[in-house]
């Protein structure tokens, strides 16, 4: 698994539950207590052991943890650069949804060895979509739920999200857009400087 993924989980655990808690989880998982390196690649099993350990340590359902990670990725101030990269996907939430098909390619453009699961958007009716993640990592759909909830908020859109479960490696997230411009949302300037 790419170090960026592991680092994201690590940062989520550290920022949300504290360094001591992170160290307990890392120790239980047998992954480096000092943390992961963003630009190195690790064994995929490390990631799942880390999530198992987090689940046990935090005594929370796996789905909850994964959703929280998705939300954290968009809304944490320390990850503003990631929020910006996501916002490049579109001017409004619907455009963003349509950009999800390109997400793995966009990620690869930035970091060539970062392999994200393929994501497909299906439009069933006006304001009714499914986001389908394919042969990826079990639970990735939960991360998408958290991420979509936070990014919808970022755009100021009001949405209903529902994880419809999955089979044969695919997971389906149902998206109902109730109001595109519900709130003001957070500003996004093309030319802003970050970091």
């Amino acid at each position: 698994m790419h170090g960026l993924i592991n680092k994201a989980i690590e940062r989520f655990l550290r920022e949300t539950y504290g360094d001591a808690c992170w160290q307990d989880i890392a120790r239980a998982a047998g992954t480096p207590e000092a943390g992961f390196e963003c630009m190195l690649v690790y064994d995929a099993a490390d990631t799942f052991r880390l999530l198992d350990a987090a689940q046990a340590q935090l005594d929370k359902p796996r789905a909850q943890i994964l959703e929280d990670i998705g939300t954290f990725l968009v809304s944490h101030p320390g990850l503003e650069s990631l929020r910006r990269l996501l916002r490049f996907g579109g001017d409004d939430f619907v455009e963003f949804l349509h950009s999800l098909d390109d997400l793995p390619e966009r990620a690869r453009l930035a970091v060539p060895d970062l392999d994200l699961p393929r994501i497909e958007l299906r439009e069933h009716a006006a304001n009714h979509y499914s986001v389908i993640s394919e042969h990826g990592w079990p639970g990735f759909g939960r991360v998408i739920v958290g991420l979509l909830r936070a990014i919808a908020d970022d755009y100021g859109a009001l949405v209903l999200l529902d994880h419809k479960g999955g089979r044969e490696g695919t997971e389906v997230v149902e998206v109902r857009l109730l109001e595109q411009a519900f709130a003001k949302g957070r500003a996004f300037h093309l030319g802003a400087r970050t970091g």
Partner: peptide, 29 residues
């Protein structure tokens, strides 16, 4: 930045926004 342009200021076929994305993504990486 100087002229406060948005993605609507570029034709949809123009690669400027993708280029800005790439600049930021590569800087972060």
């Amino acid at each position: 930045r100087d002229f406060a342009l948005t993605s609507a200021d570029f034709a949809a076929t123009d690669l400027t926004v993708e280029m800005l994305y790439l600049v930021e993504a590569k800087s972060a990486a």
